[in-house]
Design a protein around this nucleic acid. Structure first.
Lengths: 260, 260
DNA sequence: TATTATTGTGTCAATGTAACACATATTTGT
DNA sequence: ACAAATATGTGTTACATTGACACAATAATA
């Protein structure tokens, strides 16, 4: 690995970014009826980290978040929203973050300045993003060795307070189900009614009546039924639908009343 | 005024607080059927500022926000919640904030260091607080000359991006009406049904049917009707109610379904 | 070709909502 | 002191929405 280049990068990190503030992003995808989140594997090969980074000195929060989202997924123009600022003074001192970093750069004396900088107190702005699972090409960053999806029901060991950030993100996601285009962002362009229902059931953590669900979804007039059906699945072929993006966003202005 | 002490304070501000991050608080009260917000008058005697400040190096965001809220209102244990981080690089460079500060401290050469520090880029975490109007004793800080209530419908000239912070706070307040104890926090301990209705009408910006409003509010079982009535008002004396705090918070767990 | 699992559509009772009427209490005006 | 005025307390009704369920249609499966 190009260690020299990395150290140059580390020096730039300090010079180019705001101190004391970072961004972490909970990137959610939906696949095989499971809600997944994109995580980075640390160099200790044990613990994992949320995608994140720092804010350029002339960059807005949203610009920084979009840049970081792109560099992990290769995607642009994605649903991305900040949901909470995490500012406990102890937050970066827990779950062996310091030990991890020191070990990681033990051999590089030139990295000491960076270590000191990054081990100081940071307040992080939590964002959450909703992506179409199949479109993501996970890419890790220079601090990590792997980037892959994890079932939110079965999270690995996470550094710092990232576990708690994910929990807050999930809570926000559920709360905003009726106020943000969550179905539109997480599902592929075309999908079946049962697939949409599974998404809602997964997010809400409960089963819904198939017929009442369909009646309500259709009543919002945000779905367009296509003439095609999805064959090759299990038994009777379901119709395909897609969101009418305009009607969807319009309907969300007032919120979809009471989708369970 | 004790200018010497002030400069010592200014030096401490830099030493004691995190750089690049601040807190601003939209403190709302409800009085005479109007939603009000507490603002500070700048030394230019023209522009106004949101209550706010910086975060101590070992202080959490919530601790800092509570400390700042207390120092403007004299109140503790108040509903206080962060709602958004404002991070546009230009946000503190607009509405003559720099000119204002430089003018303000033009005569104090010792304040130059502080000016430089505070004119750098800041990301601010926006909080909103809900207080019982009559309990507040507004107190200004060392940067300002007055602290008083303003009708949110009739805001004065605000520095920086504070106008936009207030607008976002109001939007959040309306969205959270069914999910946070907003009535409980803004109204006095005992109140009448019409008073509660006015609060909702003001926040929602529309009139509600008196009889349907009462039926719905009572259906939540979060109100306790007192045997006393409020005499001396206009015509027939209305009953007094108070919130059953326990039931209220419990009901908010799932949200009050659809209060208009 | 019959079976089976899944989807499409419909029904009905129970519940919740919007719109409205009338009686009652207290202040107001004379 | 008394009638008028005005706001509050309570109730009714038509209508819309919801939850629970039944049955027919379709395509894979055996």
């Amino acid at each position: 690995m190009a260690k020299d280049n990395e150290i140059i990068s580390l020096k730039n990190v300090i010079e180019d970014n705001l101190p004391s503030i970072s961004i972490d992003i909970a990137i959610f995808g939906f696949h095989e009826n499971h809600l997944r989140i994109l995580l980075l594997k640390n160099k200790d090969k044990e613990s994992w980290t949320l995608p994140g980074g720092f804010i350029g000195k002339e960059e807005s929060l949203e610009e920084a978040a979009n840049r970081l989202l792109f560099s992990r997924t290769g995607l642009n123009n994605i649903f991305l929203q900040q949901f909470h600022a995490f500012g406990d003074p102890e937050r970066t001192r827990i779950n062996k973050r310091a030990e991890l970093l020191k070990e990681q750069y033990a051999k590089d004396q030139y990295a000491q300045e960076f270590i000191e900088w990054v081990l100081g107190r940071f307040i992080t702005i939590g964002f959450y993003a909703l992506v179409e699972f199949t479109e993501v090409e996970p890419k890790h960053d220079i601090f990590t060795i792997e980037c892959r999806w994890h079932d939110v029901q079965d999270l690995p060991l996470l550094v710092s307070d990232h576990q708690s950030i994910i929990e807050t993100a999930l809570k926000t996601l559920r709360q905003q189900l009726n106020y943000q285009p969550i179905g539109l962002s997480l599902l592929p362009h075309e999908f079946t009614m049962p697939e949409l229902q599974r998404l809602y059931e997964t997010l809400l953590g409960k089963t819904l009546d198939r017929r009442n669900f369909q009646r309500k979804m259709l009543s919002y007039k945000i779905l367009e039924r296509l003439p095609t059906k999805r064959k090759g699945g299990a038994y009777k072929a379901p119709y395909l639908y897609r969101f009418d993006k305009e009607s969807y966003e319009e309907a969300l202005q007032n919120g979809l009343k009471d989708l369970w």
